[in-house]
Design a protein around this nucleic acid. Sequence first.
DNA 1: CTAATAGTGTCTGTGAGACAATATATC
DNA 2: GATATATTGTCTCACAGACACTATTAG
Lengths: 264, 264
Amino acid sequence: MGDEEFLASYDPRAYDPVAVAIDVVALTIRDGALHVLLVRRGVPPQEGRWALPGGFVRSGAHAEGLDAAAARELAEETGVHADALDRVHLEQLAAYGAPERDPRMRVVSVAYLAFAPEMPEPRAGSDAADAAWTPVPSLGLTGHGSQRPGTTRRLAFDHAAILTDGLERARSKLEYTALATTFCAPEFTIPELRAVYETVWGEELHAGNFHRKVLSVPGFVESTGATSDRGGRRGGPRARLYRAGDARLLHPALLRPSREEEIR
Amino acid sequence: MGDEEFLASYDPRAYDPVAVAIDVVALTIRDGALHVLLVRRGVPPQEGRWALPGGFVRSGAHAEGLDAAAARELAEETGVHADALDRVHLEQLAAYGAPERDPRMRVVSVAYLAFAPEMPEPRAGSDAADAAWTPVPSLGLTGHGSQRPGTTRRLAFDHAAILTDGLERARSKLEYTALATTFCAPEFTIPELRAVYETVWGEELHAGNFHRKVLSVPGFVESTGATSDRGGRRGGPRARLYRAGDARLLHPALLRPSREEEIR
DNA sequence: CTAATAGTGTCTGTGAGACAATATATC
DNA sequence: GATATATTGTCTCACAGACACTATTAG
């Protein structure tokens, strides 16, 4: 049987139905704290709970690829428009497909990870009752994909586990890529960049060593020649301004100080 | 509307059908060359072409998770049995969902990456006309997800791109994890371990420096006290035997010598 | 015997991290 | 003026890579 003959006799509905969804872990930094974009579900199941923005991948006549679906969901369900999206880094995180993760039917979700500079408060989209940048520490994540008892905003489905994976990926990506600059405005100071690392990693870094290290990595940042119009928050000289360089990977890498625990 | 009421009225077949498949990039080392497990397709579409082993995820009554589906496909379509599987490392690679990647219907495939020690020749499973460990260099990969013109074994669908991604992931994983030992027998010598790195990375390493480096990373290997019963291939003293240690991550990492090209 | 290899020792350059010093902001 | 901060300098230790050396095995 040739391909044409086979395809004519092929019935896609002969199998048990499966849906493919997209969920986006969109991270940004606001007021010196790491925030994740959440929407409050306006429809069942789990109506009223907070969840990662997402939805089903379009198939059939208006079929779209996974990357396109993720960009669309991020824009659509939050009011972040396409022109702001090109300053957002978007990459695939992982696929989640436990049989009982969604009560409606078998849903396999492809999660994406987004790094965004500071953005306006989102407005809720179609199926969402609300949308908000939410401080990650307020979610009480345990590090094992669950939330501590008593946390106010319980996440829907397995979204706590997806978010945990996204955070770990983000922490790791800052080590060996130049993506920390995507959390910053187009022009930024080294102390601002250091604040990004400190916020995502959750540890304080040595200001002097960090400064020298960033400037020593080729292509990480390039000088604008200009100087910030204000000094540090609580005093100090004005810092020089930089923009992102052309390096995608940091070499040598900027490693987290303490990860002894994770080795074994 | 509550969850129960909503679910009773929910019709999964209202959407355009999508299938979720698994594809496995299974790598091993044979005769000093990197090999990937391929099956020759015994059914349309692309009947007769070589492809990554895989199949559709089971849904409905005998639903399985993604990891379980990958392990089942690897065992089923190749005759690698469950007892041999526990010496295989299996991890998720990425999801591929371009709308036209499969002519039958919309198929989103979740690819897995497997590292296996030397194994017997596979036997073809249900839908496969043949199965074989295939030398990766013989596939003429370009590094951009395509194959050089004139290559004998053209891979089906987008499997050349998936394989390219899997190889890059494998190269990268050897740098900062202890997974190189999963390519080896339970007891191995440092020169054998070095051969794994040289084969996957495609570059020769300095024997003396590699030896000292491996022993200096805590938990990478542990001595068995025994000694190999033969010397090197073309002479030299017998090497000492080691087994895999308890470290999952290498600290400090074992970096590839030359990756200047990939930075920008 | 000859050639290749396992394993160790040594040296040098780079870079990370601790600490210090100075100038310049904020409050 | 008191204090915090940006930036640069210095020192030390760890480590990667180059090279050298010895003992041991295959052919």
